[in-house]
C-alpha cells in the first residue's frame, strides 16, 4: 500500500518534474550536438550543451509579445498553459518509491483523463494564432490521438487488470514478486509508443514538426512558447515515469531504497526513449493509424485476454 505523503509534497513534485524534464532535454541536446559535429565533444562543450534548454527558456522569456493577425489570444494561451497543468496533475498518482502525492482510488483513470487534456491543449494552441501551419499542426494531433489513444487505454487497463485494481499503489504491490513487463510485454511496448505519441515527441512529433515550422507551436513566442514546449517535455517525463509503477515494478528492487529504484527505472526509460527518437524518423499518422488499428489494437486485446485468463486461474 502506498503511504500518504505530507502536504508539502505538492511543492516537491513540480520541482522534481521540471528538474527531470530539464535533465532529459539537456541530454537530448548533448546527443543532437554530438551528431551534428560528428564527435561527442569535450566535457566543457557537453556542459554548455546540457544547460541549453535552460538558456532557451530565458531566451524566450525576454521576447517581445507577438500577435498574429486576428488571432484568438486567449485560446492559444489556454492551450499552451494547459499542457504543463495536465502533465503535473497527471503526476499526482506517480509513486516515488512507495509514496505518491495522492494515491487516488481510480489513479489510472485519473492519469488517463489528465493526459487526454493534451488533445484539447494542442488543438487550441494550433487554432488560436490564425495561421495555416499551426492549424495543420493542431489537427495533426487529433489524428494522432485517434491512432494512439485506444491501444494506450487497453495497455494501461491490462496493467490494472493484472492487479485487479485501479489504484496505482496496489498495481505496484502486485509486482512485488514478478514485474508486469515480464508477462505483459506487448502492453508495455504499446505503452511506450503511446507515451511518445501523447507528448507528440520523437517519432510522433508531427503535430509540432519542423516541416510545418513548429506546427501547433509555430506562432507561439515568449512565455506561451516556454509553457507549450516545456509542457511537452513534462508530459514525456510523466508518461515515461508512469510506465515504472505500471510495468516495471515501481519501487521494488534489491538493495537500494524504493525511491532510488523509481528514479533509476524512470531514467532508464527516458534514456531509452531519447535513443528511440534518434533512431527513427517521424511517423506520419496517415500510415501509422492503420497500423494502430489493425495491428496494435487487436494485439492489445489479445494481451488483455491472456492477462484476464491468468487472473481467473490465480
Amino acid at each position: 500500500m502506498v503511504e500518504r505523503t505530507p502536504l508539502w509534497a505538492v511543492f516537491v513534485l513540480p520541482a522534481l518534474l521540471v528538474g527531470a524534464a530539464l535533465v532529459t532535454a539537456g541530454f537530448d541536446a548533448v546527443l543532437a550536438a554530438g551528431a551534428r559535429r560528428g564527435r561527442p565533444g569535450s566535457l566543457r562543450e557537453t556542459a554548455v550543451r546540457a544547460v541549453e534548454p535552460g538558456r532557451q527558456v530565458l531566451r524566450h522569456l525576454v521576447q517581445q509579445p507577438r500577435r498574429t493577425r486576428a488571432s484568438d489570444l486567449p485560446l492559444a494561451r489556454i492551450g499552451a498553459g494547459l499542457l504543463p497543468v495536465a502533465a503535473v496533475l497527471a503526476a499526482v498518482v506517480l509513486p516515488l518509491g512507495f509514496r505518491s502525492v495522492s494515491d487516488l482510488p481510480e489513479g489510472i483513470v485519473w492519469f488517463n483523463a489528465m493526459e487526454a487534456l493534451a488533445w484539447a491543449a494542442v488543438w487550441l494552441a494550433g487554432w488560436g494564432p490564425n495561421s495555416t501551419l499551426s492549424l495543420i499542426g493542431g489537427y495533426r494531433f487529433l489524428a494522432q490521438g485517434l491512432a494512439y489513444e485506444l491501444p494506450h487505454m487497453l495497455a494501461i487497463t491490462t496493467a490494472a487488470l493484472g492487479a485487479e485494481s485501479l489504484r496505482v499503489g496496489e498495481v505496484v504491490d502486485a509486482q512485488a514478486g514478478l514485474w508486469f513487463v515480464v508477462w505483459m510485454p506487448v502492453a508495455f511496448v504499446i505503452y511506450l509508443l503511446s507515451a511518445m505519441a501523447m507528448a507528440f515527441w520523437g517519432p510522433f512529433d508531427q503535430p509540432a514538426g519542423r516541416d510545418v515550422a513548429g506546427g501547433a507551436g509555430a506562432e507561439l513566442s515568449g512565455a506561451d512558447r516556454v509553457l507549450f514546449l516545456g509542457g511537452r517535455w513534462l508530459l514525456l517525463v510523466v508518461a515515461a515515469a508512469f510506465s515504472v509503477p505500471l510495468f516495471l515494478g515501481g519501487g521494488h528492487g534489491p538493495l537500494l531504497p524504493g525511491w532510488a529504484w523509481t528514479v533509476l527505472k524512470t531514467a532508464a526509460v527516458l534514456a531509452f526513449l531519447v535513443g528511440v527518437r534518434r533512431a527513427i524518423p517521424t511517423v506520419r499518422m496517415e500510415r501509422y493509424l492503420e497500423l494502430a488499428w489493425v495491428v496494435l489494437t487487436p494485439l492489445a486485446i489479445v494481451q488483455a485476454l491472456v492477462v484476464a485468463v491468468v487472473v481467473l486461474n490465480r
Binding site: P14, Q64, P65, T68, R69, S131, G222
Partner: peptide
C-alpha cells in the same frame, strides 16, 4: 499560480512591452 507567475516573469523581463503585430508565418 506557477503558470501565471511565468507570464508575469516574462512581462517583467521582456525587452519591449508593446506587442509586435504580424501576419501568420508560412
Amino acid at each position: 499560480a506557477a503558470v501565471v507567475l511565468l507570464h508575469a516573469l516574462s512581462v517583467a523581463l521582456r525587452a519591449v512591452r508593446e506587442p509586435v503585430h504580424t501576419g501568420p508565418f508560412s
